[in-house]
Design a protein around this nucleic acid. Structure first.
Lengths: 348, 348
DNA sequence: TTGAAAGCGCTAACAT
DNA sequence: ATGTTAGCGCTTTCAA
């Protein structure tokens, strides 16, 4: 009776919109455990059954519920990536290297953008953990390891990329910032500039500190005394180089060379210098850091320190994949420091 | 005995690394159902119990397993976003508008980058569905709606952003490409240019088609016959504008104005024109589309059609949120076409 | 106010 | 080769 009644509204073999293995099992007339085995290529299923199940799955356009799989497998095949700025010319290239490397290994990426907001960094971290990602790659803006690692379960694979917090025991991949800065400033010195300013953001990242110490190192080596008013750090992002150099020049501090923390700031500096009536590079040479794509544009031609962004990301992903494939007990910290490259263009 | 033995190694009330509601319940001496109720602010829990549970959860740094919640709630509070190019100056700004809007509403973003690869677009789509996202926003490179909508369950909220495939019934948000192109070409005409070329990629996106028809429209209105060799479409991305204009000029086709599909191509065109010995804008005016940040740089000064990228993203997210809040039956298609804005700079 | 129990979709151990 | 069952962590009836 019930059977007949049901048939009035719904074909017994009708395909639900989002079929589960139970629906397939019902149509195949077998148990749903067998369907699971057949679909996952496990042993102990006859060729005949396996093919029938696969055909049915195809026909019903079955897609496994990854959330349910994640719950039982205790693995989501998903990695979280946290970066400070998705609109910058720098981080998305890191992200691309990471994404493509993970994709090849069958992992997916949860990409999170904090817009340089430490609170959002913490929120996203919590979120990724709740979402049960298998590992995390982060270009953190936290200063101390504790700031963020206290949020992260100790068995969660974690790799820092492009910067890392003070005191961490975890893996990281980044450029040799000290050496890069040293190269930049040494290049300025080789061009006979002596009064060299450092202009940077006020993000207290390790990368900034290192670039500053590379700056000091190069000047020390040349026996040049460092004057504190030659170091300008400000909160602004992006076009801030303009304001900072204008400010500096306005105060009567006239450098003959500027090393900027990154290319975006350097481009602002170049404009500020020009708008103040000086010539680049004749009166003031300017060098940046990163080698973003626009730096090589014929009308920009910014000298800079090159970072292999895609590769940095790819390496970070490879390290994470290695952690993912190991038992928690035998995971080792892996740290890579890549060599920077001096690119001389028209601004120096 | 067993109790005592256990105590040698593990306090009975020890906190596991990733505690569950059961662990909290054990320590509180209540059932885990009550813990769930307490934590989720449901009615029917005494103030006392609720506070005890919350304190315990805090102390044990409990974080709900979102995967398990997703399974039972049939909602993941996660939205998928698919864009073709994460390294472009355009899409990340869309993504930012989307991300921040969704974040305010408590949703998370799964950001996927296809690198203009249709196969990866399909793969990611399948993936997002398996991951049980609650909705999808996509800047699709598919030409026909069927190409991708056949993959998507019909009850899945879907919003196209910045481009949409032929024949879709779904919502979208984009700039008025026809009008924008019309404005660009009309601007060129107002500068007394008559031989106006169109240079674009070969991505068969609706946005390209519309920009082409805007180009035709403006020329028709001016009574100018369109010569097919003035329309150049090529496969290359980014710096391709350079090759395309050099090719065109090499064949002896000398336009006096160029409308490029986007700013990146336009910048390549400007270089190509200059390297061929012509002046911009005197011999050849060039206008782009998008108004990417670098277009306004003092050394670039590219005329273009402005798109409010962040807002386009934000609107798309708002539409999706509205769908998410409605029953499937009462979801209506919402389509927004934003007005473009002509930005005249030095290249025209 | 609280507990017991079912079930979300799936995998895997244990039976048969 | 296949079926039965437990259980992943959680929410939500239904009882008490």
């Amino acid at each position: 009776m019930v059977q007949i009644f049901d048939d009035l509204f719904l074909n017994v073999y009708d395909t639900p919109m989002n079929p589960t293995i139970k629906d397939i099992a019902a149509r195949a007339g077998i148990s749903y455990a067998t369907v699971s085995r057949a679909l996952n290529g496990k042993y102990g299923v006859s060729r005949e059954t396996r093919e029938k199940v696969k055909a049915l799955a195809e026909e019903m356009s079955y897609r496994p519920n990854a959330i349910a799989q994640g719950l039982v497998n205790r693995a989501t095949m998903t990695v979280g990536l946290i970066i400070p700025d998705i609109t910058s010319p720098f981080f998305p290239r890191l992200a691309l290297g990471i994404e493509e490397t993970l994709l090849k290994a069958g992992y997916n990426l949860f990409l999170c953008n904090t817009s340089w907001n430490p609170e959002r960094e913490r929120d996203y971290l919590n979120n990724l953990i709740q979402k049960q990602v298998d590992g995390i790659i982060i270009s953190s803006i936290a200063h101390h390891a504790d700031d963020i690692e206290s949020l992260i379960p100790s068995d969660m694979p974690l790799v820092y990329v492009s910067s890392y917090p003070e005191g961490t025991e975890h893996s990281y991949v980044l450029i040799d910032n000290i050496k890069g800065a040293d190269m930049a400033v040494t290049h300025l010195l080789s061009r006979k500039h002596r009064r060299i300013a450092f202009i940077g953001s006020e993000q207290e990242r390790h990368s900034l500190e290192d670039r500053l110490s590379g700056y000091h190192k190069a000047l020390n080596r040349a026996g040049i005394e460092i004057s504190e008013d030659m170091v300008v750090l400000d909160k602004f992002q992006e076009q801030s180089g303009y304001k900072m150099i204008r400010n500096l020049l306005g105060k009567g501090t006239i450098p003959d060379g500027v090393f900027a923390e990154n290319d975006l700031i350097a481009m602002g500096v170049v404009q500020g210098v020009r708008d103040s009536g000086y010539r680049v590079p004749e009166d003031m040479a300017v060098i940046g850091f990163d080698d973003i794509p626009i730096a090589s544009h014929p009308d920009i031609q910014l000298s800079t320190i090159h970072q292999p962004k895609y590769r940095i990301g790819a390496y970070a992903a490879e390290i994470l994949l290695r952690q993912l494939n190991r038992d928690p007990s035998e995971r080792r910290t892996e740290r890579m420091t890549l060599q920077p490259e001096l690119i001389v263009r028209r601004s120096t």
